[in-house]
Design a protein around this nucleic acid. Structure first.
Length: 480
RNA sequence: GGGGUCGUCGUCUAGUUUGGUCAAGGAUACCAGCCUGGGGCGCUGGCGAUCCGGGGUUCAAAUCCCCGCGACCCCA
């Protein structure tokens, strides 16, 4: 047996399993630069699917896509002090152009607030210029010094960053929540990954924001992964970049801004949450190939007949909006193909051999459960359509169950530590809102407050750390 | 942030402990030819590695020492 398949079990060595799935399924490869990766066809197709879904949703809301420069002058980055402090440790700098040293060094964007907002200041004069609702899909560089992981933490990654400017705080608040909801819909209904949504604490918020909201998902190893963020920037950037408008009241006002993003990290989450010992398992709605048809020809039977049937099925599926690939490569055996497509996570496999042709049927195999059954020819489209939906919801439900199983409510610090150690996951508890307690807990356990739920939950105890009066219910966890 | 492991044909690896047997062995992939086809099938032949890079020790280095580069794992 070769080393082509996954050689470790997800349950036995999660890290190693993850790396193998990513590499062997053809999602990604290492680049010859430390901490950088290659997004191969398979992962880029997933990214394009994410783009497709998200673009559609924000365009419906009136957002437009743009592209701003990769380089940001140092002076821009420095304008908002908190923002600069937050990002400077991991900024990559361009100091030389050709043979000449630059007068002012340029940051390779770690995020584009500053370069975009310098321009917003130029564009905005009147309340009639508002709101501005722009988004860009681009690459980002953050010079990580910590250990990097494919998709999860790399020095360069792809993302989408939305940047809006509004006349009032209320409008900005609404924007933040609407985007958060679009993210939740994308992640839960397409990627089939359940999330918790909420607000970040002061310690965890975006550098320079008024407040940050986020989606957090639970990975099978009990660690928490942030799946997207949406910030209300308040007027912090408006004040330093001088983004002002004359309102209907004939007075001068600073704009209220938001920014929000999701990254290619989502693909890493997809691998971790749904993958199994055979490789990737893709939710049908995000899979670029939803069905693969594998003809099984024998020497003594009419190969053409089988192929013709296979083609017919493929066309029929595509006519009905189901993506299908006919794998008619004669140089590989059916068994070989089964393994390859399973590794790549294709939701449904359709086998068609002499047995099937004779009985006017096909054999279906679903990737999520590895079940196999026979379907009559005329029922293929209906069955596949239903099965795709079923796989989609099955994946979500399984992940949801895991999330619920691994969310523990505690009242005491001892229970907190025990739950974290034994199960990991989310620890739901009460907190006094004092950042000292938050920091102490982080120091002692490595867990941080991932979220304060948007809809306030009813208090049930004192602060889990200091035992002073509890002010809010929060969710702790160890984050990636 | 702390600790550990590792780097040998495209890939996975044997060899490193104890320097000489290594002009580096195997498997897989790849190429040619057969055979096949409902789970990575089989047979024959072929191609393929200045042992991650640099320096040092030595009569002799894949093996020992130093520096660098890169990757992985574990813990917080």
């Amino acid at each position: 047996m070769s080393e082509m398949g996954i050689t470790v079990k997800k349950s036995e060595n999660f890290s190693e399993w993850y790396t193998q799935v990513v590499l062997k399924s053809g999602l990604a490869d290492y680049a010859p630069i430390k901490g950088c990766m290659i997004f191969r066809e398979h992962s880029y197709a997933i990214w394009e699917k994410i783009q497709e879904v998200f673009n559609k949703r924000i365009k419906e809301k009136g957002h437009k896509n743009v592209y701003f420069p990769l380089f940001i002058p140092e002076s821009f980055l420095k304008k908002e002090a908190e923002h600069f402090e937050g990002f400077v440790p991991e900024v990559a700098w361009v100091t030389t152009g050709g043979n000449s040293k630059l007068e002012e060094r340029l940051a390779v964007r770690p995020t584009s607030e500053t370069i975009m907002y310098a321009t917003y200041a130029k564009w905005i004069r009147s309340w009639r210029d508002l709101p501005i609702k722009l988004n860009q899909w681009c690459n980002i560089v953050r010079w990580e010094t910590r250990a990097t992981r494919l998709f999860l933490r790399t020095r360069e990654f792809l993302w989408q960053e939305g940047h809006t400017a509004h006349a009032t705080k209320e409008e900005a608040d609404t924007e933040v929540i609407e985007i958060l909801n679009i993210y939740k819909d994308l992640v839960e209904n397409y990627l089939a990954i359940p999330v918790l949504v909420g607000k970040k604490t002061e310690n965890e918020k975006f550098a320079g924001a008024l407040y940050t909201t986020a989606l957090e998902a639970l990975m099978p190893d009990g660690k928490v992964l942030q799946m997207g963020t949406s910030h209300n920037l308040g007027q912090n950037f408006a004040k330093v970049f001088d983004i002002k408008f004359i309102g209907e009241d004939e007075k001068e006002h600073y704009v209220w801004q938001t920014s929000w993003g999701i990254t290619t990290r989502l693909i890493g989450a997809l691998v971790m949450v749904h993958g199994d010992d055979r490789g990737l398992v893709l939710p049908p709605k995000i899979a670029s190939v939803q069905t693969v048809i594998i003809p099984i020809p024998y020497k003594d039977v009419d190969k053409e007949l089988i192929l013709r049937k296979a083609r017919e099925i493929s066309e029929n599926l595509q006519k009905n909006g189901i993506s299908a690939v006919l794998d008619d490569r004669s140089e590989y055996t059916p068994g070989w193909k089964f393994n390859e497509w399973e590794l790549k996570g294709v939701p449904i496999r359709i086998e068609i051999g002499p047995r099937d042709v004779k009985k006017r049927q096909v054999t279906l195999a679903r990737r999520d459960t590895i079940e196999r059954f026979v379907v009559k020819e005329e029922e293929i489209v209906d069955t596949v359509t239903k099965l795709l939906e079923e796989i989609q919801s099955n994946l979500f439900n399984k992940a949801k169950e895991f999330l619920e199983d691994h969310t523990t409510t505690v009242k005491t610090y001892n229970d907190f530590k025990e739950a974290l150690k034994k199960k990991g996951g989310f620890i739901r508890t009460c907190w006094c809102s004092n950042s000292t307690c938050e920091e102490k807990i982080k120091e002692e356990t490595g867990a941080t407050i991932r979220l304060i739920p948007l809809e306030k939950e009813e208090l049930f105890s004192n602060c889990v750390y200091c035992d002073e009066e509890g002010k809010e219910v929060v969710y702790f966890g160890r984050a990636y």
